[in-house]
Amino acid sequence: MSYQSDLYQQVILDHNKNPRNFREIEGHSNSCDGYNPLCGDKINIHMQINESGLIEDIAFSGSGCAISKASASMMTVNMKGKTVADARVMFEEFHKMITGVMEPQPGAHHLGKLTIFQGVREFPSRIKCASLAWHTLVCAIDKTGETTIE
């Protein structure tokens, strides 16, 4: 186990330094504030979802560690153009991957480049950092206002 090869890979460091879709969406259709009370991380997700359930735009703002920021950034990149139903499947798969329940075999999942986060499972205290944006995504889709991961 090494933090450099398993956790802080170049792609993650790059998304931390230059987060994509790090903005707000004016007139968004969906949003949610996600909190991790343990470390004080806050992530806000804005989404534009059309009538047929297609995610036309998604963006995030807030503050957090490299893992939570990179996870949010890469999630938004992978979510644009997907349907709400796709998003739910990906949430389930991502969650199973980082908690070690699912081995991301090539071709057997919808996560694509997001498999880069599988090393998080070796750092149990960081799993919530990686999953904060995803819980917030589901909350935004369901319009439940805000979410706190315990």
Partner: peptide, 12 residues
């Protein structure tokens, strides 16, 4: 570096 990242690395 966010404090959370600091602690993970120096914990090693």
């Amino acid at each position: 570096a966010h404090p959370h990242d600091v602690i993970t690395i120096i914990d090693q």
